[in-house]
Computed example of a mutant assay.
Amino acid sequence: MTDVMKAIILGIIEGLTEFLPVSSTGHLILAGHLLSFEGQTAITFKIVIQLGAVMAVLLLYWKRYLAIGANLIRMDFSPSKGLNVIHMMLAMLPALILYLLFKDTIKSQLFGPIPVLIGLVAGGLLMIIAARSRRTETAETMDRIHYKQAFGIGLFQCLALWPGFSRSGSTISGGLLLGTSQKAAADFTFLISVPVMFGASVLDLYDSRELLDSDDLFLMAIGFMTSFLVAMIAVVTFIKLIKRLRLEWFALYRFVLAGLFYLIVLQ
């Protein structure tokens, strides 16, 4: 199979899984193992093409980003007026700091099939606990999320640095445990995904600049565009799906995927 075909396949997988709590990074790592597409360049490729899917969210929430930007210009950070840039910073900073401190360890130790399978199972258990927890719901919509909840969701997002946990799975679970509705947690998760993934992709491209050549950049462009186009088709349906389906169903899928991959591929 040619590298171009591998890039297209991985782009399709990314576009289909980025918006579900099943770990798009985990799927890309497992698929990369099956396709013999691994190594430092492959790690950077898998991170960069996530940006293609995330850009679909930018188009979906563009009015919300403009409103947050306008409030930032006016220096209007009143939480009574809904979500603002402080909410987003509180949710992004914990994972960003940890990633900057441990990015080399994460890439060298966790970007493999076994860590992903562990993350799939552990993340699935977290989702079941969150879905079945008895909590007082204080934020029915994204605009009702307060600063403490935003920071708490940001702490849960740190779990997503372990491939297989899933960024959306971790943050939505965190939101449920902290008193938000599943819809509010999902909306907030998608909103903060753009700056988080954009920053991670740019940072990884910069760190890998000496290891990449024109062929690598060409493959990344193919994967990016494929991921973006597939995500544009899937985004509306999947966002509605994640807001309505109980997390247990996604947890069950994660358990089945981890079990089958271990038994069929790794044994």
Rank of each mutant, 00 (worst) to 15 (best):
L252M: 11
R244D: 11
A234I: 08
L252I: 13
I239G: 09
M232S: 03
L245Y: 12
L245W: 15
F238E: 03
L241C: 06
I264V: 15
I233S: 11
G259Q: 07
A234E: 04
E248Y: 04
G259T: 03
Y262M: 13
R254N: 04
V235A: 06
V235R: 03
T237F: 14
L263C: 07
L263N: 06
A251L: 06
L247V: 09
F255T: 02
R246L: 10
M232H: 08
A234R: 04
F261T: 04
G259S: 08
Y253L: 04
L241H: 03
Y262K: 07
R244N: 13
R246C: 00
A258N: 03
Y262S: 07
F261P: 09
L263W: 12
F238D: 02
V265H: 14
F261A: 10
L260P: 07
R244I: 06
L252A: 14
I233V: 14
V265I: 15
L247T: 04
L266P: 02
L260F: 05
I233D: 08
I239N: 05
Y253S: 00
E248T: 12
T237V: 05
V265L: 14
L263Q: 12
I264M: 10
M232E: 01
V265A: 15
V256K: 03
R254V: 00
L257G: 01
L252Q: 04
R244A: 12
V265P: 13
L247S: 01
V256T: 01
R254Q: 07
I233W: 00
L257P: 09
R246M: 02
I242R: 06
L263E: 11
